[in-house]
Design a protein around this nucleic acid. Structure first.
Lengths: 150, 150
DNA sequence: TGGAAACCGGACCAAAATGGTACTGTTTTC
DNA sequence: GAAAACAGTACCATTTTGGTCCGGTTTCCA
């Protein structure tokens, strides 16, 4: 269904929880509690988000996590990429040359085009906007914004 | 990765093959040959595409498949939906109420918003446009929703 | 100085989705 | 009535996903 994985969905929740406490370092347990998610799952997510440079970690007693950048500077695309790798609808969209049918398939260009547009949509939605609840037009940079759903 | 399934990718290839012969009824074998895909796989795809009303089927000798509508009237969203169901990045995007965390999660609105935008992107790319952007033709149509991979 | 609080990096496993194939039936044409 | 071609369904192997656990390391503080 053209889904993002459930972990990615959870990751956005985790990020918004962290973002609502901009001044604090939150432990995994606190975050899991506020996000209503299992602790091991949240722990795994935070590791991934840390590797992607979206959160900063602090070890030891009173350690925990904090946003690495202001919420305005973190996009949904950043989060999706942290969990799922580079954004692209098809294999061709990410790396050419893998497909031996590439020469005659003819659709790769179209897929790349829409992948780019979708990347723009995701990049236009910031964590700050997600916090705000009802964001304005999410599709900046994409040529076909469409209506903001129902 | 935010991928579309490989079958969906194949389906676009199959559709473009059919679309290049607007006047003919093509057998599954012909389509498989032109698309360079396995016959059973193509057969499965065509059944799905038929159920979605994107292709018409004709049984018996000299039977086969044909586009049910002109290529201009078939969008990438139609094909994706035929293979993967309703378009929505998260479960919340498709049907509300499933998630017991819905009340406090706060991100569902954002996901719905970007899902809608992506749906628009997919709906804006028609099969006719995909045909126009074949690799043999160096002059890529400027009618695409966005420039490739920004 | 030692213990507790937290994160780190893996490994691991069960369950589900995916991709691919096969088989049998039905329809149509000649 | 035989052959061509689609229809429906069932099946299986593989991969991906989601979730959990464990031992190790770092830091704080009594």
């Amino acid at each position: 269904m053209l889904r993002v994985s459930r972990l990615t969905d959870y990751a956005t929740v985790v990020m918004t929880v962290i973002a609502t406490h901009p001044a604090d370092v939150l432990s995994t347990a606190q975050i899991a509690d506020e996000a209503r998610l299992e602790l091991p799952t949240v722990s795994k997510l935070l590791k991934l988000l840390g590797h992607a440079g979206l959160v900063e970690s602090f070890r030891g007693v009173n350690g925990g996590y904090r946003l690495a950048r202001p919420a305005e500077a973190i996009s949904l695309a950043d989060i999706v990429e942290a969990l799922e790798g580079p954004i692209g609808l098809t294999e061709c969209s990410i790396a050419q040359g893998h497909c031996d049918r590439h020469a005659q398939c003819g659709v790769s260009g179209s897929w790349q085009s829409v992948s780019g547009a979708i990347d723009g949509v995701l990049r236009g939605m910031t964590l700050a906007q997600m916090l705000a609840g009802r964001p304005a037009a999410p599709a900046k940079g994409a040529a076909n914004p469409a209506q903001a759903n129902a």
